[in-house]
Computed example of a mutant assay.
Amino acid sequence: MTRDRANAGQGPLYRLYINRLRRGLAPESVPHHVAMMIDGNRRWARQLGYQSAADGHRAGAAKMQEFLRWCDGVGVKVVSLYLLSTDNVRKRDAVELSDLNDIIAQLADEISRVPGWRIKHVGRAELLPPELLRVLREAEARTKDNTGLHVNLAVGYGGRSEIVDAVRSIIAQHDATGGSLEELAASLTPEQIGEHLYTGGQPDPDLVIRTSGEQRLSDFLLWQSAHSEFYFVEALGPDLREVDFLRAIRDYGSRDRRYGS
C-alpha cells in the first residue's frame, strides 16, 4: 500500500464507516491485551523513495502513537509493541541501529507523557545503549502510578531469551532458599515460569496483530501467545489505518476461542 492509500478515505464516508465499525464493537468482545508487531517500515521507505530506513522507522513510530490511541479508544487495557528484537540489535547496520535507538527513545518519552498511560520496558537492558535505557527507565518511573492503558515496549527483546531469563530467575530464587535441583524439577510449573517472565503478573495477549503481510512470530511473546488469536494485515506498518485496526478487533470478536484445540 502506498502513502496515497494511507491518506485515502479521510472524507465523510470513511468517517461514517469508522463510526459504524466502532458502534458494532461490543465491550465484551474487545481483547484485553493486544500485541502489535509493526513490520514493513524499511520497505515503506524504499517504495516511497526515501534514502534512509530511518524515515520509515519514524513513520512507523508515529503510527504506533496512533495505534495506542485507537486501542485506548475501544477499551483495550494492555498493549505490547515489538520495537527492537535481540536479532535487530545483533544484525542491523550500526547507523540504522543508532537511528532506531533514537526513534524509540523519542517514542517512549512522548507516550510516557500521555495522561494515565503506564509504560513498561520488556527486554534485556544490557543490550541497550545507556541513553536509550535511561529514557526507558524514566518513562517507567514517570508512569508507575498510572492506571490507564498499560504499554509494554519490547526493546532488546527476544522470546527465547525471555524464557531463558525466566528459568534462570527461578533457579536463582530456588537456590537462595537452599532447595535441591530434584525439588526444583518436581515443583516447576508453567505458572511459575509465567510469573518470572518480563510480563509476569500481566494477562497473556488475546490478539496478536502483524503488519506487512508477514505471517510469523519472529520470536515475539513465544510463551505468552500460546493461546492468542492472530491477525495479519497486508498494509506496511506506516500505512496501517484505523479501519484496519477496527476490522481486526471485529474479527477477533467473531472468533470462537478454543483453548488448546
Rank of each mutant, 00 (worst) to 15 (best):
T2C: 12
R3S: 03
D4V: 14
R5S: 09
N7T: 11
A8P: 00
A8L: 05
G9W: 07
G11V: 02
Y14L: 01
R15C: 02
Y17M: 14
L21P: 01
P27D: 07
E28L: 05
H32Q: 15
A35R: 05
A35L: 09
M36K: 00
I38K: 00
D39M: 03
G40L: 05
R43W: 08
G49N: 11
Q51S: 15
S52R: 15
S52D: 15
D55E: 15
G56P: 04
G60D: 00
A61E: 06
A62Y: 03
Q65Y: 00
L68R: 06
V74E: 10
V78A: 01
S80P: 10
Y82I: 07
L83V: 08
S85P: 12
K91D: 14
R92V: 09
R92K: 15
D93S: 11
E96L: 08
E96I: 09
L97K: 13
L100H: 07
N101C: 14
I104N: 06
L107T: 12
L107E: 05
I111K: 12
R113L: 11
G116Y: 09
R118K: 15
I119Q: 06
H121T: 08
V122L: 14
R124W: 07
L127D: 13
E131A: 15
L132N: 07
R137N: 13
E138V: 09
A141S: 14
T143K: 04
K144T: 12
K144D: 13
K144P: 00
D145R: 15
T147D: 14
L153E: 10
A154S: 10
S161G: 15
V164I: 13
D165I: 02
A166F: 06
A166K: 06
I170E: 08
I170D: 04
H174P: 00
G179P: 09
G179A: 10
E183C: 00
S187I: 02
S187R: 15
L188V: 10
T189R: 11
T189M: 03
T189Y: 01
Q192T: 10
I193S: 07
E195Q: 14
H196Q: 15
H196R: 13
G200Y: 03
Q202D: 09
D204T: 08
D206V: 04
L207D: 06
V208S: 03
I209A: 05
R210W: 04
T211F: 02
S225G: 09
F232T: 11
R241V: 06
R241K: 15
E242K: 12
E242N: 02
V243D: 11
L246P: 07
A248F: 05
D251W: 13
Y252V: 01
G253V: 04
S261N: 14
